[in-house]
Computed example of a mutant assay.
Amino acid sequence: MAVFTPVSLEDVTQWITQFPLGKALGLQGISSGIENSNFFLTTERGEYVLTIFENLSFEQLPFYLKLMRHLAGHGVLVPDPVANDKGELVTTLQGKPASIVSKLEGRSQMAPQPVHCAAVGAMLARMHIAGLDYPLHQPNLRGLDWWHETTPQVLPYIPEDKAQLLKSEVHYQETFAACEHYKQLQTGPVHADLFRNNVMFVGEKLTGFFDFYFAGCDTWLFDVAVTVNDWCIDLETGVLDAARVRAMLDAYHAVRPFTDAEAHAWQTMLRAGALRFWLSRLYDYYMPREAEMLTPHDPTHFERILRERIATPAPGLF
């Protein structure tokens, strides 16, 4: 992700002595993304990822890090947070909260085929089931309340046709969230950002989900919709690829069957997933923060996906 807080190997040398990782041997900033400062960290014990959190507080972070530990304990492939000599998963570096997690093997699959989508769908279902007994609760911080708060901030920057689409879709989602069908949807911890670049593969073998720092408690179906909207589309048009959609949904359904209420809500949740990322990209594009390495995402990508989801029904859940 973008490096907002510069850190050198010298800065880390003394700080890392509190962890059972040996000496720090190398540190490299990671340029993708726009939320936290991330670094590949090489130590005498292996390869890790160091994150300095730019927005999340010390009070919020245990939800994410303990969730990763909980999921790992249930067989879900995720990075393992490293505790310091006091048992803490979050400590202070450069005056900000920081953590270290294990680095997953492999690389992101940026041109997924149905076999990759099936692996993601099955693991996502396992993740949802594993989260059922997770004791901590935190809402999705980029959910409906955030949409209401953020929409007025971006409206002055966008043309009237985009503004009308944004306002009407927020209203549509607000109305649906108040209906009985929505209340019947299964909920629990969700990743909420499971894009291609947040999953690792070695060949066709999935080796892990990572970057849980948008996780929260929401409907499982929203998580599926966000994932489908990235893994199963033509990137140029936003049009869904039926074979990849079917592979992901069938693999998920085989592990955790979809419900009738979810089938009813599916088209709406796909629109919700597109809206969430269109709005966040509008916000990041027009109100960027300073960073050493920053590549803001193009908001029109998810505007295009939202318009496509409104215009064209997607393949059903089953």
Rank of each mutant, 00 (worst) to 15 (best):
M1E: 12
V3W: 01
T5P: 01
T5D: 11
S8C: 04
L9K: 11
W15C: 06
W15L: 07
G29M: 03
I30G: 03
S31D: 13
I34T: 11
N38C: 06
F39R: 07
F39N: 04
T43Y: 10
E44T: 14
G46Y: 09
E47Q: 15
N55T: 15
N55A: 13
S57F: 07
F58L: 07
F58T: 04
E59N: 07
Q60V: 01
P62M: 07
F63I: 08
L65M: 08
H70Q: 09
L71K: 10
G73S: 11
H74I: 03
G75H: 08
L77T: 03
P79I: 00
G87I: 10
E88F: 02
E88K: 12
P97Y: 04
S99F: 00
K103C: 11
K103Y: 12
G106H: 02
R107E: 15
R107Q: 15
P112Q: 11
V115M: 02
V115G: 01
C117W: 00
C117Y: 03
C117T: 02
A119I: 05
G121A: 06
G121Y: 00
R126D: 00
I129V: 13
G131D: 01
G131M: 02
Q138F: 08
P139T: 11
P139D: 14
P139R: 13
W146A: 04
E149F: 02
E149A: 15
T151Y: 06
L155M: 14
Y157G: 02
P159D: 15
K162C: 01
L166K: 13
L166V: 10
L166A: 10
K167P: 00
K167G: 08
E169L: 08
T175A: 13
F176V: 05
K183N: 12
P189M: 05
A192G: 04
N197A: 03
V202A: 11
G203H: 06
E204N: 12
F210Q: 00
F210T: 01
D211I: 02
Y213K: 00
G216M: 03
G216N: 07
L221M: 06
A225W: 06
V226R: 04
V228A: 08
W231M: 00
I233T: 15
D234V: 13
D234I: 11
L235H: 14
E236Y: 02
E236M: 10
T237F: 10
G238C: 05
G238W: 06
R244H: 00
V245P: 00
D250M: 05
Y252F: 13
H253G: 02
H253S: 09
A254K: 13
V255C: 10
F258Y: 11
T259S: 15
D260P: 05
D260K: 14
D260L: 14
D260M: 11
A261I: 05
A265D: 01
Q267I: 06
Q267L: 08
Q267V: 08
T268Q: 11
A272N: 10
G273W: 09
R276L: 08
F277Q: 05
F277H: 12
W278S: 06
S280H: 07
M287E: 14
M287A: 14
P288L: 07
E290Y: 13
P296G: 12
T300M: 05
R304S: 12
I305G: 00
L306D: 00
R307C: 10
E308T: 12
G316H: 03
F318L: 15
